[in-house]
Design a protein around this nucleic acid. Structure first.
Lengths: 128, 128
DNA sequence: AGAATGGTTGAAGAAATATTCAACTGTTTT
DNA sequence: AAAACAGTTGAATATTTCTTCAACCATTCT
C-alpha cells in the first residue's frame, strides 16, 4: 500500500497492482465522456417519450407537443438536443418539420434497456 | 386539424389520426420515466468511469478514487447512486468494501452504446 | 403584401444534480 | 482502549439542465 500521489484524492492506493492493471485497460477519458453524453440525451423523460413516439411514426412538432402535453418551445428545445446527438433527423414539408429516429442503434439500445427496466419491475413485484 | 385541448400546450393537433394512433401505442408514463432514470445513472462521466473500471475488476473505494483522481466522498456518493439503481453490488472484507458490477445487462447496454459512440466518431473522422 | 401558422432561439428563472466539507460509523491495529 | 484506517452521510455550495417567455424566422394562405 502506497500513499496516493493524486492531486485531488484523499486516500491510499491499497491494491497497487490492481489499480495499475485497471488503469491500463480503461478507455480514454474522451470516449467515456462521449458515452456519458450519449446516455445524458436519453436520461430525460421528455426525450424518452419523444423517442417512444417517433419509434411509432414520423411526427411534426405540434403533434409531439400535443402528445406530451407540452409547449412547442419546450419540445423544440428537446428535439434540438436529440438532433445534436444524432438520435433523430428532420425534414421540412411546407410549414411543418417532421422528425424521425436517426437509425437502428437507438431502437436497439432503447429496447434492451426497456427490457432491463421491465425485468427489474417484475423482480420487485414478485418479492411481495 | 383541430384546436388542441391540452392544458399545457400552445398548438394545434395537425395530424389528428396520427396522434391518436401513436397515443394508443405509447408505453405507460411510469415505464418511460423508469427507463429515463435508468439512463440517468449512466449519464455522468464519473459513474461511467466507475462502471468501466469495475468491468475490469472488483475494486475498493480507495482504488477507485485513485483511478479517477477524486475524493473518497465524491466516489462513495456516486457508488450509492449506482447501487440504488442495482447496477453494482458490494461486499465488505475487513475495513474495505469491494464493489463490482451487478449483472450482465449493464455490460450489454454499456457495450452497445460504446459501439454506437465509436461509430459516430469514425463517421465524423472520415468526413474530413 | 399582410396575416396566420409552424417552428426556432436566447436569456432568465426554476429545478435537479454533483462535489465539497466536516462529522460520523465500523473494523482493525497496537 | 485508543489510534488509525476505510468508508459513509447530510448539509451547503456549485454546476448543470429544463422549462418558460418573448421575440424571432420561414412558409403558406388570402
Amino acid at each position: 500500500m502506497t500513499k496516493c500521489k493524486c492531486v485531488n484524492c484523499d486516500c491510499n492506493i491499497i491494491h497497487e497492482d490492481d489499480v495499475k492493471a485497471v488503469r491500463g485497460k480503461m478507455l480514454d477519458d474522451d470516449i467515456l465522456i462521449a458515452t456519458a453524453d450519449f446516455y445524458k440525451v436519453l436520461s430525460d423523460s421528455t426525450r424518452i417519450k419523444i423517442i417512444n413516439a417517433l419509434d411509432e411514426k414520423e411526427l411534426c412538432v405540434c403533434d409531439i407537443s400535443s402528445l406530451l402535453n407540452m409547449t412547442k418551445s419546450a419540445v423544440s428545445h428537446q428535439l434540438q438536443n436529440l438532433k445534436d446527438m444524432n438520435l433523430i433527423k428532420s425534414r421540412r414539408a411546407g410549414k411543418e418539420i417532421f422528425y424521425s429516429l436517426a437509425d437502428n442503434h437507438v431502437r436497439q439500445v432503447f429496447e434492451i434497456s426497456l427490457q432491463h427496466v421491465l425485468e427489474e419491475r417484475n423482480d420487485k413485484a414478485s418479492e411481495n
